[in-house]
Design a protein around this nucleic acid. Structure first.
Length: 522
RNA sequence: GGGCCUGUAGCUUAGUCAGGUAGAGCACCGGGCUUUUAACCCGGUGGCCGGGGGUUCGAAUCCCCCCGGGCCCGCCA
């Protein structure tokens, strides 16, 4: 059983409508790791729907979280916003200075991310956490938390092992400049928390408005109740023993709720990106990943891995292998004796395939548009225009009529991948300009004679695939070469390797004169 | 210092919760395919399951110790 289906089964025991939630702080650019947060939850949501449960998927944006520090991409002017909720500070300009007309900091980072999510078929209900504070939806729980502050303080100290000061307070009011930093609580009488800030200024925060927020560990537990959350997978940072999940569960109970079960997912790491390193600041965002990888393959990367395992996200040759695996799953029919373990594996993989579809429960075989990822990579390299690719696919019987959207999108992404830095070099088709040493080392005199004959034959033949193919076949016949040996020689000459894409297709894309000159050098 | 995840074939991994003779894909090797979608089909090589101890008729699986990798414990998502 797939992990998402297993979770759905567990959730069904709750006998309530399911509310599956993801939560992310929009403190900067989103990255590929955030997709695991989103997709882990969304796949559980889909699994719930598939098993007939009533389920909603909600993305809570932590827009009420304060700016922690002035990040590298921000100008020093942001110093004054430290401690201010992200919903209430301006978005940065490209040069890092605060803009005057680009909306809030939170929206600035969230909006493009939501766009990416649509591309992978994720349509969450969006909750901006600061709006929940503005609307007073938190007020009852804030009031309750304040009245139970001793109990909550005990829980946090016990479970996390942290020391909280005697005057710890489960609500952080915003001071005179809107920041929650350096603000001391001096008293409480519903609905006002009285405070004094670093500047010696005093005031009061109305807990029914966004004039302050609860610290994370309490905020999280409270929102589970407010939104009736039944499931919220969390990154392993929350999952460590004594972490916010462990304190959230008892705090949620203290506040009168039924907390979700603890689910912790592992991080995604980057691999195969050459000199990439964290110090050089090169990361991969969801937009970039989506510009290279077909959406169902991106979903499959998450779906195929167990929640608790690291994922090495590799935009190089591993993409071919993942795509191959995906395509094999589509066509594979198990034969012979199927053991219990084999059946488990098959069910799990089929579940992963099902949950990888951009459109829920659509036919997986339609997602690849009838053309394998590898084949498309070859065509995209040797055919400069899309129309030629479609023409070729029609000739080979992969396509009839016009390509569908899914296939057109796949080709576009394939071209981005090939043109970019992530494409693996050994998959790149590089036409040789001169005959290299490898050629001489790997071919016989007979093979060379064949190629010389071919170069003559190609001088006059029609420049299309069929004629070229006929010429190749004919010349091989003259020297009695087996197909394998003839083609190998051709590939050694053209590509400096013993294999390659369909030779006639490749040659028909080349300039006749250049090719003949090359072959004359054998 | 405390804790979480993880270590299975050259690579990626299933199996660990409920102990019962190690499964798979890629790569590699051999064979087939009147002859290339880097394809496809058939067969094969390759694992003392990180190391050591223990429990058991039986351990990749349970318990203890050690080693390697990743990460969390700073009002912080």
């Amino acid at each position: 059983m797939h992990w998402a289906d297993f979770r759905a089964q567990r959730l069904s025991e709750r006998k309530v409508p399911q509310v599956i939630v993801s939560g992310i702080t929009p403190s900067g650019e989103f990255h590929i790791g955030h997709l695991r947060e989103i997709l882990t939850a969304e796949m559980i949501h889909r699994a719930c729907l598939d098993s007939g449960l009533d389920s909603r998927y909600v993305f809570i944006v932590d827009s009420m979280d304060p700016l922690r520090r002035v990040y590298d991409f921000l100008s020093p002017e942001y110093e004054k916003y430290i401690g201010v909720p992200l919903a209430y500070i301006p978005a940065p300009n490209p040069d890092g200075t605060p803009s005057t007309d680009s909306g809030s900091y939170a929206d600035f980072f969230v909006n493009p991310f939501l766009e990416s999510l649509r591309e992978i078929g994720v349509f969450p209900e969006i909750v901006m956490n600061h709006e929940a504070y503005e609307d007073g939806r938190f007020s009852e729980k804030i009031d309750l938390a304040i009245s139970k502050k001793k109990e909550i303080r005990e829980i946090i100290m016990d479970i996390s092992g942290r020391d909280l000061p005697e005057d710890w307070f489960p609500y952080s009011p915003r001071g005179s400049n809107g920041s929650m930093d350096g603000v001391r609580v001096t008293g409480y009488e519903y609905p006002f928390v009285h405070w004094e800030d670093d500047h010696g200024i005093t005031g009061r925060a109305d807990i029914r408005k966004a004039e302050g927020k609860m610290p994370w560990r309490i905020d999280w537990a409270a929102r589970w109740i407010i939104h009736q959350v039944t499931c919220e997978p969390a990154g392993k940072d929350h999952g460590a023993a004594g972490g916010s999940f462990d304190t959230g569960i008892p705090i949620c109970k203290v506040l009168g709720g039924n907390p979700p079960e603890k689910i912790v997912y592992e991080w995604i790491q980057l691999k195969g990106m050459g000199p990439m390193s964290s110090s050089s600041g090169v990361t991969i965002g969801p937009m970039e990943a989506l510009s290279l990888v077909p959406p169902e393959i991106l979903r499959y990367v998450i779906a195929r891995s167990k929640i608790g395992r690291h994922i090495e996200f590799d935009t190089g040759s591993a993409l071919f292998e993942i795509a191959d695996e995906y395509e094999r799953l589509l066509s594979r029919i198990e034969t012979g004796e199927i053991t219990k373990r084999m059946q488990t594996r098959i069910d799990t993989r089929k579940g992963a395939l099902r949950l990888s579809q951009v459109v829920r429960n659509s036919d997986p075989s339609e997602s690849i548009g009838g053309v394998s990822f590898r084949h498309l990579s070859m065509l995209a390299q040797i055919k400069s225009s899309d129309d030629e690719v479609w023409e070729s696919l029609r000739n080979s019987g992969h396509l009839s009529g016009e390509p569908g959207d899914s296939l057109a999108i796949r080709l576009g992404k394939m071209r981005n991948w090939i043109d970019g830095k992530h494409f693996p070099e050994d998959a790149r088709i590089i036409i040789q300009t001169i005959i290299g040493e490898e050629f001489r080392e790997n071919t016989t005199e007979e093979q060379r004679l064949f190629l010389r004959e071919l170069s003559k034959s190609l001088e006059n033949c029609e420049w299309n695939q069929d004629s070229i193919k006929d010429a190749i076949r004919e010349c091989m016949g003259i020297y009695g070469l087996k197909g394998k040996d003839g083609f190998a020689a051709l590939y050694w000459a053209l590509l400096g390797r013993r294999y390659g894409p369909r030779a006639s297709a490749l040659i028909s894309e080349m300039d006749r004169h250049t090719l003949i000159e090359l072959l004359k050098g054998v």
